[in-house]
Each structure stands twice: as C-alpha cells, then as structure tokens.
Amino acid sequence: MTVVALAGRQRSPAISLQRQYGLLGVLLIAPTILIFCAVIVYPLVSAIYLSLFSIYTPTLQGHWVGLGNFQEMFSSGNFWVALRTNVIWTAGTLALQVIFGVGVALLLDQNIVFRSLARSLILFPYFVSTVVAVLVWRWMFNDVYGVLNHFLLAAHIVDMPIDWLGRMPNAMISVILIGAWKYFPFVVIAVLARLQTIPPQLYEAARIDGAGAWSRFWDVTLPQLRDVLLVVVLLRTIWDFKEFDLIYLLTGGGPLVATETLPLVVYKQAFGFNAMGMASAYSIGMLLVLLVFMYLYLSRIGRGEARA
C-alpha cells in the first residue's frame, strides 16, 4: 500500500488520492450492500414483523396478534417436539458424517491405486442434487422392487421386506443414514487437506518412540485434526440443522410428524395450514437456536482472520 501511496503523491496530493481510493472501494462494494439490504436485511426484519401477525396465506390478509403466535407455539409443545426431532436428526447424521468422514479420509490418504480417481468419485454424493439422491434412494427402498430389500432377503438378514420410510424408528434411521451418505464427503475433503500438511517427522518421532499404528493415530493425527474438525462440526451442525430438501423429499416429515424438523414445520404452517404469521414465528424460533452455533463459528473464524 505504501508504494501505491508514494506513486500517487508524485501526481496529486496524497490525501485526496487516499480519499479517492476509499471512495472507489465503497463504490465497488455498493452493489453487494444494496443486494444484501434487499434480499437479506429486509426479509430478516420482515420475518420478525410477520411473526407478530396472523396471516392467511392465500389472501395474505392479516391482523396483529402481538406475541400470540409465540405463546401458542411454545405452549402447544409443537415447537419443542420439532426441536427434539431436529436435534436427533442433526446429532445422528453429524456423528456418522464425522466418524465415516475421518475414516475414509485416512484410507484415501494411503498410497492406494488410482487414488485421485477414488478421491473424486467419493465427492459425487455431495455434489449431486438432493432431488437426484432422494429419487435413487427411494427407488432402492421400494418395498416390492427395491434392490436393498432384495439383498437383505437374499442374504437371509431379514425375512420380511423392510418398510424403510413408512414407520418409526426406520424412517428416522433412514433419513440419518442418507444424510450421512450425502454429506460425509465434505468432512473427507476438509480432513484430507489437513492430513497432507501434518509434518512426517511427527510420525517418525512417534515410531522411534515405539508407538503403534493406533497410538500414532490417537497421539499424532487426532490432535493435529482438532482445529479443522471443530470448524467442520460447527459448519455441518448449522447446515444439517436447517436441512429441508432431503427430509422433505424422503419422508415429508412422516410417518405423522416423526421426522418433521423445524424447517419442515415452517413450510407446513405457511402452505399446509395457511398460517404465514405462525410459520414466521417458527422460523424465528429456529433462527434463535441456530444463532448460538453461528456465533460460535463466526467467533472462531474471526479469530483465525485476526491471526492471519
């Protein structure tokens, strides 16, 4: 920056050039700020405002109810039921994502044949559209022609076809498993990148000290992965918590409301029950829970930025 300022001083007074640059900087960021105001700040404020009304979705007519929506939401217990479902889904799928993700990353870090092909293939579930993923899984889950039931029956693991999505706890388990399948590649990539930066001397030193494979993982690899895993867990918690597509398309929240997480309740309130005000109240309730994790993540990243 000093070079720039010096160069400027030869042509015009430095102060005006600095100001000119500042102005240009603001000008360049202006479209971003305008768009953010229109599609994020305004809707956010508006969501809080809407939650104070009772609004009939088809006509969009409504009247003021104050905190009535929130009162009903909390006292009916529906919010807590959905939150509980949401926590079960998030914790279940996240745990599998991390365990499976770290495991596969360790395997793909080994010297295997066609390693780069294996690494790109493993990414596919993550990038494929949720719609495509759900279609395929529902076809494999099919009770009559589904390939999964066929395998299990042929291997004599079960003697009746499994109803994967129509009953509990099967539906929740299926959703959690497919969520893990879809999103674990994110963990793989993040962990693989970190694994490649661990200095080999650490392993050498451990080996000289007589550490076996297991203790090398436990005492060398895992501590090195701690930071990246923390960030990954926070990010994935936020993303899994607000997941809509996967659950909605797989079970629609069913059977009954057994897999109905908060985003699905928001959608059902707004377009199933035509209660847009109530839907907004649910969305605000959900945001409040998420803010905790968003704060943790952002303060973590903010610290990283300050260090850099």
Partner: peptide, 21 residues
C-alpha cells in the same frame, strides 16, 4: 464477517418475506 453470517442464514427464515416481496 457479516458476509459469512448471511451465508449461514437458513432459507426457511428468508423464504416467506421473499415470497411476499
């Protein structure tokens, strides 16, 4: 940091006001 914050916002919160907009 605000950019990152908005990136994490759930669409379920923004969708209804956007629909009305």
């Amino acid at each position: 940091l605000l950019v990152l914050f908005t990136y994490l916002l759930p669409s379920a919160v923004l969708v209804l006001p956007l629909y009305l907009l």
